[in-house]
Design a binder for these strands. Structure first.
Lengths: 191, 191
DNA sequence: GACCGTAACACTAACCGTTAGTGTTTTGAA
DNA sequence: TTCAAAACACTAACGGTTAGTGTTACGGTC
């Protein structure tokens, strides 16, 4: 924390990165279900237990780069300018996130995710956790005249917008459409 | 279908029921995580493979009685009177479902579910499948002037209402509150 | 009433993700 | 230099799940 990260932490990060890279490469080459954990560990030249000390599950290897999703959403709430309205701020952030994951370069990974039930399930369960964090961030803003239930509902709706838009034929238009609905829901909740 | 179900089907149903009852009893007695599949099978006096031919997973043993959830929701859409508005019909059905699962008699089961991450995850993933069925039922109604995206969003919001209300301190009030928001979202989607 | 195809069921043995237990090396700090 | 912590490795196992291979029991058919 005081000094530039020491050798130990760099090594740890390197090991973690090597595991993630190896896993993603193998998964894309031969399919997520066809590659076992023991194989990933062997190819990355670490022990299985080491792999699991860096990642909590096999699925987490795939979503490693998605980790700032939660942070970006909560920061869209906590870090917005005073009197900046909540829903438009969330709309902007969701739009950016959708653009990011529908970009051409990310296509193979998302195709793999959509092709594996285990990965889809993991993603949705992860998004629910994100919805809970978002709900907490919303509840923590004293300037918002929302009941706890309404705040949780808005958080869920926002996550729904992301999930639905990602799979829609025109993702950006879907974000617009769903956020118009969320905006209306917001108005009656705060009236 | 033509004759009263034959002996074979009765036996099959009896085996299935015995497995489910045994499992639920053991889970409630000693905790979901503390009871293994091999143990359930032994206590129900069937082979492990037989158990898995009746239920797709360990979690499914717990939600066996919840199977009409999906059907009740889709029927609330397809079976409503002509010109009966959609959202209030869904609200009535969700309210009934929430009442049902927050009833006193169901408390131990739901306490067990809330206490096990695996079960919670399974439930949420199941609810998402239900949302997709509901979205299909909504999309199939030609009297509804909804875009596909708006229909899917409404379906998700309705499932969110159930999940959030089930955990809210006052479940019925939460249903009311969230459905006011859904009603507003519906109005802008159909305007 | 005998016969046959099918579907339920059983059994073994394994696969796979995951973890506990135990020890060894590396590394930052005192 | 020394020490405690943390990363890492290894073995062995656990629990859910499935493939493979039979073995019954049943319902419809002749």
């Amino acid at each position: 924390m005081t000094t530039p990260p020491g050798r130990r932490e760099r090594k740890k990060a390197a090991t973690r990165q090597k595991i993630a890279d190896t896993a993603l490469r193998l998964f894309l080459e031969r399919g997520y279900d066809a590659v076992g954990i023991r194989e990933v560990a062997a190819e990355a030249d670490v022990a299985v237990t080491t792999l699991f000390s860096h990642f909590p599950s096999k699925e987490a290897l795939v979503f490693e780069r998605d980790e700032n999703f939660e942070q970006r959403l909560t920061e869209a709430v906590t870090g917005r300018a005073p009197r900046d309205p909540l829903v438009p701020a969330l709309r902007r952030e969701i739009l950016a996130l959708v653009r990011h994951c529908t970009a051409e370069s990310a296509a193979p990974v998302w195709r793999m995710i959509d092709g594996s039930p285990a990965l889809r399930e993991y993603e949705e369960s992860m998004r629910l956790r994100h919805a809970e964090s978002l709900a907490a961030a919303i509840a923590a803003d004293p300037g918002l005249p929302l009941t706890p239930t309404a705040g949780r509902a808005i958080a869920r709706f926002v996550i729904d917008a992301y999930s639905l838009a990602r799979e829609a034929p025109e993702p950006e238009a879907a974000v617009d459409e769903i956020f118009r609905m969320i905006e209306a829901a917001w108005r009656v909740a705060t009236s």
